[in-house]
């Protein structure tokens, strides 16, 4: 169960990027899964090549994520912002196809692994995998950092202003395009960071990002848009749910439960379970 909590915080981190982008610019980022996969492979490539401490690698990965996010924003998002949502869904999906296509060519669809094991923590009769604890801690730190950034710093407030009311923000002298591109960059950086963490937990392939993207959707919908901390909480809940269900039924039931939950929550709570009326 606690393990579910730990893994869940990584789900939450993954979802935070999606939720932020959705909330700020009303774009559903379908490159999310590909970015998570890139995060995984980034960890794989850098680990061992540069240092034996995977968590340090989070920083360069986040940096790359920010840059990559800004680039993708300018390629796929900027031009379709005013247009119907289908357009941004398709443009991000197109970028997703391109990234996965290149990734498959480079790494094929074989599983990869990051060989790293932290000593675990034994409390009573339970042993918690060290990697899981570290990942959860990292996720939590990043989540809190994002929340503080949004609430306390000037760029963060600019982001919230633009997401509230773009025109008003522009009238206040905020360059909304710059802000949107940074927000997108942050969203991608979060996705990459979560991918990097997942790489330390489980084996992965170029296609694994897809599973986490779907979980991110479930989490984002549960939490409501644009609420990063809510996404973290919802992610943890999802992890707990998975942990609670696993001893009782085959793992193959979990996706069914998750997706049914997803559809039900979408239909019954269009603003998310934690969401407020004002979108």
């Amino acid at each position: 169960m606690i393990d579910g909590l730990l893994v869940g915080s990584v789900y939450g981190l993954a979802a935070m990027g999606l939720s932020l982008i959705w909330g700020v610019m009303n774009v559903i980022n379908l490159t999310h899964g590909a970015m998570i996969a890139l995060g995984m492979f980034g960890m794989y490539v850098l680990f061992g090549a540069i240092t034996g401490h995977p968590y340090v690698l989070l920083l360069p990965e986040i940096g790359v994520g920010l840059l990559l996010g800004v680039v993708v924003y300018w390629v796929a998002i900027h031009w379709v912002i005013g247009r119907p949502m289908l357009m941004s869904l398709l443009s991000t999906f197109a970028v997703n196809m391109i990234i996965i296509g290149i990734g498959t060519a480079v790494w094929t669809t074989s599983p990869y692994n990051v060989n790293f094991n932290l000593p675990g923590l034994t409390v009573g009769s339970y042993t918690f995998t060290g990697n899981h604890i570290a990942a959860a801690v990292a996720a939590l730190i990043l989540a809190l950092a994002l929340d503080l950034f949004l609430r306390r710093t000037r760029p963060g407030k600019a982001i919230r202003a633009v997401s509230d009311h773009r025109e008003a923000a522009e009238l206040m002298g905020i360059s909304s395009t710059t802000v949107l591109s940074i927000a997108f960059g942050i969203g991608i950086a979060m996705a990459i960071a979560s991918g990097a963490l997942v790489a330390t937990l489980f084996p992965f392939t170029i296609l694994s990002g897809g599973t986490y993207q779907l979980k991110s959707f479930v989490v984002t919908v549960l939490a409501g848009l644009g609420k990063p901390l809510g996404a973290l909480v919802a992610g943890v809940l999802l992890g707990l749910l998975e942990g609670a269900v696993t001893p009782f039924m085959a793992a193959s039931w979990i996706p069914l439960i998750e997706f049914t939950l997803f559809v039900v929550v979408l239909v019954a709570f269009p603003r998310g379970i934690f969401g407020k009326v004002a979108a």
Partner: peptide
């Protein structure tokens, strides 16, 4: 179909995945 725009699109993904998950079991 009560949902609009992107929410509807996501719901259709959910339905697809749920049906697949169901058939797997």
């Amino acid at each position: 179909l009560r949902l609009r725009g992107a929410y509807f699109a996501l719901a259709t993904i959910g339905v697809l995945q749920a049906v697949q998950a169901f058939v797997i079991n």
